[in-house]
Amino acid sequence: MTDNLFQPYALNDTLTLQNRILMAPLTRCMADDDLVPTDTMAAYYARRADSGLIISEATIIRPDGQGYPNTPGLYSPAQIAGWRKVTDAVHAKGGKIFAQLWHTGRVAHPHFFGGEFVLAPSAVKVEGTVPRMRELSYTVPKPASHEEIEQLIADYSQAAANAIDAGFDGVEIHGANGYLIDQFLHYSSNQREDEFGGTPENMARFPLAVVDAIAERIGADRTALRISPGAYFNMETDARDRQVFDYFLAQLEQRNLAFVHIGIFDDSTVFDYLEGTASAYTRARYSKTLVGVGSYTAESGSEAIAKDQFDLLAIGRPFIANPDYVQRVKTGKPLVEYSDTMLAELI
């Protein structure tokens, strides 16, 4: 039984979703060489407009945020116009769509923007090479100065305004999965000794400043945030992170955001220092709208919602394989199984 997935859900007085199934952000690397969304991308998103809310693939806020080839941006007029085609196509089908705002931090690479360095909280390199471009090894990042941090906050705010200009219904700030904002929230990547590091209050200072700047610019009702309390991707674990997220979530509880979204590939993963899963830890500390994700089926996600583990269910790879995912679940039609070969084209 999955009936609860098909009930409308009011995020707030501004936005009501037609159901509780969200399309999770799925990086596809299909923008053109100027990082402009294409007509093919518009058709791809429009085919999935039956979801309660589409969260776009991660979209970089400025050139030095790029860490993967052909990921779309949201900082040039051409990119804004390209996204307008996408949002118009989704809205024409009765859907809603948020832009996920992204800066990859130390996971960026100078190759993409012709720069001399990448920015991060501290000069701590992530090991490995760039996906899809294995000839590029990651570099030691430059710790962001106070002036650079202030500019990043301003650029996040501007990207949110650009998203609204492009027709998005709101934005999700990508504060998860080992990227820039998440890097400030974990001890392994944030080794600063100034007001942006060393204590939970300091480590949360930049992420909260980004949240507040965007909420002030476009409204808290159109602002959401994705977080990864458990370090699991491009990040080493540190038990002290628990104290950071205890503080961070208490601060988020005081803000009336559209939702908070867990960043995790598999929500059955148990983190010792969180004393459970990322979603269970977050739910115990955040009472407002929470989005669960991570290898759930419609059935297991419906059960989790019924048990109040979270309020909305985000579905990832099955949406790649099944553009009509919502209708298939609703009518009991079997799902097409996801395969990595599907990443080669937008269907």
Score class of each variant (00 low, 15 high):
163 A>P: 13
110 P>C: 07
104 T>R: 08
174 H>F: 12
118 V>A: 05
182 D>V: 04
115 G>S: 06
137 S>R: 10
112 F>H: 08
149 I>E: 05
140 V>Q: 08
100 Q>H: 04
85 K>Y: 04
174 H>G: 00
135 E>P: 00
147 E>W: 02
161 A>L: 14
103 H>N: 14
126 V>P: 01
144 A>W: 09
140 V>G: 00
99 A>S: 14
178 G>N: 03
124 V>I: 15
107 V>L: 15
112 F>A: 01
136 L>K: 11
115 G>Q: 08
150 E>N: 13
130 V>K: 10
164 I>M: 14
139 T>P: 00
102 W>M: 14
129 T>S: 14
175 G>M: 11
141 P>V: 06
102 W>I: 08
175 G>S: 09
108 A>C: 15
96 K>S: 06
133 M>W: 03
86 V>S: 04
161 A>Y: 10
182 D>T: 04
166 A>V: 12
159 A>T: 07
96 K>W: 03
139 T>R: 11
142 K>Q: 15
129 T>K: 14
119 L>F: 09
158 Q>F: 03
116 E>N: 12
124 V>C: 03
85 K>V: 03
94 G>N: 09
162 N>E: 07
163 A>H: 05
84 R>V: 00
152 L>Y: 14
105 G>P: 13
92 A>I: 04
158 Q>I: 05
148 E>R: 08
94 G>K: 09
136 L>F: 11
92 A>V: 03
163 A>G: 15
164 I>V: 15
119 L>P: 07
108 A>M: 06
107 V>C: 13
158 Q>L: 14
175 G>Q: 12
90 V>I: 13
165 D>I: 10
176 A>F: 02
101 L>K: 10
119 L>N: 09
179 Y>W: 10
111 H>L: 00
144 A>E: 06
150 E>Y: 05
85 K>M: 04
96 K>A: 08
98 F>V: 00
144 A>F: 08
158 Q>G: 03
169 D>C: 03
93 K>M: 09
131 P>E: 01
106 R>H: 08
138 Y>H: 14
138 Y>A: 00
